[in-house]
Amino acid sequence: MTAIRHPFLDRPLPLAFAHRGGAAEGLENTVTAFRRAVDLGYRHLETDVHATADGRLVAFHDDTLDRVTDGRGRIADLTWEQVRRVRVGGREPVPLFSELLETFPSARWNIDVKADAALAPLLAELEAAHAWDRVCVGAFDERRVARAQELAGPRLATSLGTRGVRALRLRSWGLPLPVRRGAVCVQVPVRHGRIRVVDAAFVRAAHRLGMQVHVWTVNDADTMRALLDLGVDGIMTDHIELLREVLTERGAWQG
Protein backbone atom coordinates (compact mmCIF):
# COMPACT_ATOMS: atom_id res chain seq x y z
CA MET A 1 0.00 0.00 0.00
CA THR A 2 1.29 3.46 -0.91
CA ALA A 3 1.14 6.62 1.17
CA ILE A 4 -1.69 9.02 0.31
CA ARG A 5 -0.11 11.82 -1.71
CA HIS A 6 -3.21 13.86 -2.54
CA PRO A 7 -6.71 14.31 -1.05
CA PHE A 8 -8.26 12.89 -4.25
CA LEU A 9 -6.91 9.48 -3.18
CA ASP A 10 -7.81 9.79 0.49
CA ARG A 11 -10.43 7.04 0.59
CA PRO A 12 -10.24 3.39 1.71
CA LEU A 13 -8.90 1.13 -1.01
CA PRO A 14 -9.73 -0.19 -3.49
CA LEU A 15 -11.28 2.83 -5.19
CA ALA A 16 -14.33 2.24 -7.39
CA PHE A 17 -14.67 4.53 -10.42
CA ALA A 18 -17.87 4.96 -12.42
CA HIS A 19 -16.48 5.21 -15.96
CA ARG A 20 -18.35 8.02 -17.74
CA GLY A 21 -20.89 7.62 -14.96
CA GLY A 22 -21.54 4.01 -15.94
CA ALA A 23 -21.49 3.95 -19.73
CA ALA A 24 -23.22 0.57 -19.99
CA GLU A 25 -26.58 2.27 -19.48
CA GLY A 26 -26.15 4.21 -22.74
CA LEU A 27 -26.29 7.75 -21.31
CA GLU A 28 -22.59 8.24 -20.73
CA ASN A 29 -21.26 11.50 -19.29
CA THR A 30 -24.68 12.89 -18.40
CA VAL A 31 -26.07 14.21 -15.14
CA THR A 32 -28.48 11.27 -15.11
CA ALA A 33 -25.64 8.74 -15.39
CA PHE A 34 -23.57 10.38 -12.68
CA ARG A 35 -26.55 10.71 -10.36
CA ARG A 36 -27.25 6.99 -10.72
CA ALA A 37 -23.64 6.20 -9.83
CA VAL A 38 -23.72 8.49 -6.81
CA ASP A 39 -27.01 6.97 -5.67
CA LEU A 40 -25.35 3.54 -5.83
CA GLY A 41 -22.63 4.81 -3.52
CA TYR A 42 -19.86 5.80 -5.93
CA ARG A 43 -17.63 8.65 -4.83
CA HIS A 44 -15.12 8.55 -7.69
CA LEU A 45 -16.54 9.44 -11.09
CA GLU A 46 -14.63 9.36 -14.38
CA THR A 47 -15.34 11.79 -17.20
CA ASP A 48 -13.77 13.50 -20.21
CA VAL A 49 -13.63 17.15 -21.21
CA HIS A 50 -13.56 19.10 -24.46
CA ALA A 51 -13.72 22.84 -25.10
CA THR A 52 -16.31 24.30 -27.46
CA ALA A 53 -15.40 26.90 -30.07
CA ASP A 54 -16.26 29.64 -27.58
CA GLY A 55 -14.24 28.11 -24.76
CA ARG A 56 -16.92 26.38 -22.68
CA LEU A 57 -15.86 23.12 -21.05
CA VAL A 58 -18.19 20.17 -21.66
CA ALA A 59 -18.14 16.64 -20.26
CA PHE A 60 -17.98 14.49 -23.37
CA HIS A 61 -15.74 11.68 -24.58
CA ASP A 62 -15.57 11.88 -28.38
CA ASP A 63 -14.31 14.86 -30.34
CA THR A 64 -17.54 14.74 -32.37
CA LEU A 65 -21.18 14.53 -31.33
CA ASP A 66 -22.00 11.85 -33.88
CA ARG A 67 -21.71 8.57 -31.94
CA VAL A 68 -23.88 9.17 -28.87
CA THR A 69 -26.08 12.18 -29.63
CA ASP A 70 -28.71 13.25 -32.13
CA GLY A 71 -26.34 15.97 -33.33
CA ARG A 72 -23.36 16.13 -35.65
CA GLY A 73 -20.02 17.91 -35.81
CA ARG A 74 -16.78 18.47 -33.96
CA ILE A 75 -17.20 19.99 -30.52
CA ALA A 76 -14.21 22.27 -31.12
CA ASP A 77 -16.05 23.77 -34.13
CA LEU A 78 -19.37 24.32 -32.34
CA THR A 79 -20.48 26.93 -29.83
CA TRP A 80 -21.95 26.04 -26.48
CA GLU A 81 -25.36 27.24 -27.72
CA GLN A 82 -25.16 24.62 -30.47
CA VAL A 83 -23.92 21.82 -28.23
CA ARG A 84 -26.47 22.45 -25.51
CA ARG A 85 -29.32 21.70 -27.94
CA VAL A 86 -28.26 18.10 -28.72
CA ARG A 87 -29.25 15.10 -26.63
CA VAL A 88 -27.24 12.05 -25.58
CA GLY A 89 -29.25 8.96 -26.49
CA GLY A 90 -31.92 11.34 -27.77
CA ARG A 91 -32.78 12.19 -24.14
CA GLU A 92 -30.12 13.84 -22.01
CA PRO A 93 -28.25 17.14 -22.54
CA VAL A 94 -24.48 17.38 -22.67
CA PRO A 95 -23.42 18.91 -19.35
CA LEU A 96 -20.92 21.63 -18.70
CA PHE A 97 -18.19 20.40 -16.38
CA SER A 98 -18.92 23.31 -14.05
CA GLU A 99 -22.47 21.93 -13.75
CA LEU A 100 -21.12 18.57 -12.63
CA LEU A 101 -18.90 20.15 -9.99
CA GLU A 102 -21.87 22.06 -8.63
CA THR A 103 -24.42 19.25 -8.86
CA PHE A 104 -22.20 16.66 -7.14
CA PRO A 105 -20.20 18.63 -4.56
CA SER A 106 -18.95 15.53 -2.72
CA ALA A 107 -17.85 13.59 -5.78
CA ARG A 108 -14.23 13.17 -6.82
CA TRP A 109 -13.62 13.54 -10.53
CA ASN A 110 -11.12 11.67 -12.64
CA ILE A 111 -10.82 13.79 -15.79
CA ASP A 112 -9.40 12.77 -19.14
CA VAL A 113 -8.42 16.00 -20.92
CA LYS A 114 -9.07 15.16 -24.55
CA ALA A 115 -7.52 18.20 -26.26
CA ASP A 116 -5.01 20.94 -25.54
CA ALA A 117 -7.74 23.58 -25.85
CA ALA A 118 -9.56 22.07 -22.87
CA LEU A 119 -6.68 22.43 -20.42
CA ALA A 120 -6.79 26.16 -19.62
CA PRO A 121 -10.60 26.24 -19.18
CA LEU A 122 -10.39 23.21 -16.91
CA LEU A 123 -7.76 24.73 -14.64
CA ALA A 124 -9.72 27.99 -14.52
CA GLU A 125 -12.86 26.15 -13.44
CA LEU A 126 -11.02 24.18 -10.77
CA GLU A 127 -9.64 27.46 -9.40
CA ALA A 128 -13.04 29.16 -9.45
CA ALA A 129 -14.71 26.22 -7.69
CA HIS A 130 -11.83 25.59 -5.25
CA ALA A 131 -12.03 21.98 -6.42
CA TRP A 132 -8.35 21.02 -6.50
CA ASP A 133 -8.71 18.46 -3.72
CA ARG A 134 -11.34 16.40 -5.56
CA VAL A 135 -9.90 16.13 -9.05
CA CYS A 136 -7.28 14.01 -10.80
CA VAL A 137 -6.26 14.93 -14.35
CA GLY A 138 -5.01 12.46 -16.91
CA ALA A 139 -4.49 12.25 -20.67
CA PHE A 140 -2.94 9.87 -23.15
CA ASP A 141 -0.62 12.75 -24.09
CA GLU A 142 2.11 12.87 -21.44
CA ARG A 143 3.04 16.37 -22.53
CA ARG A 144 -0.49 17.65 -21.87
CA VAL A 145 -0.77 16.17 -18.41
CA ALA A 146 2.76 17.30 -17.50
CA ARG A 147 1.73 20.81 -18.59
CA ALA A 148 -1.30 20.62 -16.29
CA GLN A 149 0.98 19.68 -13.41
CA GLU A 150 3.40 22.46 -14.28
CA LEU A 151 0.66 25.10 -14.35
CA ALA A 152 -1.23 23.96 -11.25
CA GLY A 153 1.56 22.61 -9.07
CA PRO A 154 1.09 20.02 -6.32
CA ARG A 155 -2.49 21.07 -5.58
CA LEU A 156 -3.50 19.12 -8.72
CA ALA A 157 -3.36 15.32 -8.77
CA THR A 158 -2.24 13.86 -12.10
CA SER A 159 -1.79 10.40 -13.57
CA LEU A 160 0.85 9.25 -16.03
CA GLY A 161 0.30 9.60 -19.77
CA THR A 162 1.16 6.95 -22.34
CA ARG A 163 4.88 7.69 -22.38
CA GLY A 164 5.05 7.48 -18.60
CA VAL A 165 3.13 4.20 -18.57
CA ARG A 166 5.56 2.75 -21.11
CA ALA A 167 8.52 3.81 -18.98
CA LEU A 168 6.95 2.29 -15.87
CA ARG A 169 6.24 -1.00 -17.67
CA LEU A 170 9.88 -1.21 -18.80
CA ARG A 171 11.03 -0.22 -15.32
CA SER A 172 9.02 -3.13 -13.90
CA TRP A 173 11.08 -5.40 -16.17
CA GLY A 174 14.33 -4.10 -14.71
CA LEU A 175 15.20 -1.19 -17.00
CA PRO A 176 15.91 1.92 -14.87
CA LEU A 177 13.98 4.44 -16.97
CA PRO A 178 12.88 7.80 -15.49
CA VAL A 179 9.20 8.28 -14.71
CA ARG A 180 7.55 11.64 -14.06
CA ARG A 181 7.58 11.86 -10.28
CA GLY A 182 4.75 14.36 -9.89
CA ALA A 183 2.11 11.82 -10.84
CA VAL A 184 0.20 10.31 -7.92
CA CYS A 185 -1.24 7.38 -9.87
CA VAL A 186 -1.02 5.38 -13.06
CA GLN A 187 -4.23 4.57 -14.91
CA VAL A 188 -3.96 1.76 -17.43
CA PRO A 189 -5.76 -1.00 -19.31
CA VAL A 190 -5.04 -4.62 -18.43
CA ARG A 191 -3.48 -5.07 -21.87
CA HIS A 192 -2.35 -2.88 -24.73
CA GLY A 193 -2.64 -4.99 -27.87
CA ARG A 194 -0.51 -8.08 -27.30
CA ILE A 195 1.36 -6.55 -24.36
CA ARG A 196 0.21 -7.27 -20.83
CA VAL A 197 0.37 -4.02 -18.89
CA VAL A 198 -0.92 -4.91 -15.42
CA ASP A 199 0.76 -7.73 -13.54
CA ALA A 200 2.31 -8.13 -10.11
CA ALA A 201 5.64 -6.63 -11.23
CA PHE A 202 3.93 -3.56 -12.68
CA VAL A 203 1.94 -2.99 -9.49
CA ARG A 204 5.10 -3.33 -7.38
CA ALA A 205 6.99 -0.90 -9.60
CA ALA A 206 4.24 1.70 -9.30
CA HIS A 207 3.97 1.28 -5.54
CA ARG A 208 7.73 1.66 -5.13
CA LEU A 209 7.39 5.08 -6.76
CA GLY A 210 4.48 5.99 -4.49
CA MET A 211 1.83 5.72 -7.21
CA GLN A 212 -1.51 3.99 -7.02
CA VAL A 213 -2.59 1.70 -9.88
CA HIS A 214 -6.08 2.21 -11.34
CA VAL A 215 -7.21 -0.11 -14.15
CA TRP A 216 -9.70 0.68 -16.92
CA THR A 217 -12.19 -0.26 -18.27
CA VAL A 218 -13.00 -3.54 -16.52
CA ASN A 219 -16.45 -4.96 -17.23
CA ASP A 220 -16.36 -8.60 -16.13
CA ALA A 221 -16.32 -9.98 -12.62
CA ASP A 222 -13.49 -12.50 -13.06
CA THR A 223 -11.08 -9.83 -14.28
CA MET A 224 -12.12 -7.53 -11.44
CA ARG A 225 -11.35 -10.26 -8.91
CA ALA A 226 -8.00 -11.12 -10.51
CA LEU A 227 -6.92 -7.48 -10.47
CA LEU A 228 -7.92 -7.05 -6.85
CA ASP A 229 -5.88 -10.15 -6.01
CA LEU A 230 -2.88 -8.48 -7.68
CA GLY A 231 -3.26 -5.52 -5.33
CA VAL A 232 -4.45 -2.82 -7.72
CA ASP A 233 -5.73 0.28 -5.96
CA GLY A 234 -8.74 1.09 -8.11
CA ILE A 235 -10.96 -0.19 -10.92
CA MET A 236 -12.93 1.78 -13.49
CA THR A 237 -16.01 0.17 -14.96
CA ASP A 238 -19.00 0.81 -17.21
CA HIS A 239 -20.95 -1.80 -15.23
CA ILE A 240 -21.20 -0.01 -11.92
CA GLU A 241 -23.61 -2.43 -10.24
CA LEU A 242 -21.31 -5.36 -11.07
CA LEU A 243 -18.23 -3.73 -9.55
CA ARG A 244 -20.20 -2.88 -6.45
CA GLU A 245 -21.26 -6.54 -6.17
CA VAL A 246 -17.69 -7.81 -6.55
CA LEU A 247 -16.36 -5.41 -3.94
CA THR A 248 -19.26 -6.16 -1.59
CA GLU A 249 -18.63 -9.92 -1.74
CA ARG A 250 -15.02 -9.23 -0.67
CA GLY A 251 -16.04 -6.85 2.11
CA ALA A 252 -14.35 -4.01 0.25
CA TRP A 253 -17.25 -1.83 -0.92
CA GLN A 254 -16.82 1.64 0.57
CA GLY A 255 -19.96 3.31 -0.71
Rank of each mutant, 00 (worst) to 15 (best):
D77E: 13
A59W: 11
D77T: 10
S98W: 04
P93C: 14
D70H: 09
T103W: 07
G73Y: 02
L78I: 10
L78E: 11
I75A: 03
T69D: 02
R87I: 00
D66L: 05
G89K: 03
R74H: 14
E99D: 11
E92V: 04
A59P: 00
S106F: 15
A76D: 13
R87P: 03
R72M: 00
L96D: 07
T103P: 10
V94N: 02
S106L: 14
A59C: 13
D63W: 15
R87A: 01
G89S: 04
V94I: 14
D77N: 09
S98F: 00
E102S: 13
D63I: 15
L65E: 09
R74D: 13
G73C: 04
D62Y: 05
A76M: 03
P95K: 08
D77F: 04
F97W: 08
D70R: 11
G89I: 01
R67L: 03
L96A: 12
T64A: 11
R67Q: 01
L78Y: 13
R84T: 09
L65K: 09
V88P: 01
L65P: 04
R91L: 10
S106W: 10
T69R: 02
P95N: 04
Q82M: 03
E92Q: 11
T64M: 06
P95S: 06
V68D: 00
F104C: 06
H61T: 14
S106I: 08
P93H: 14
R85D: 12
P95V: 03
L78K: 12
E81G: 02
V88L: 00
T103I: 12
D70G: 08
E92K: 00
W80Q: 02
V83T: 02
G73E: 05
R67M: 06
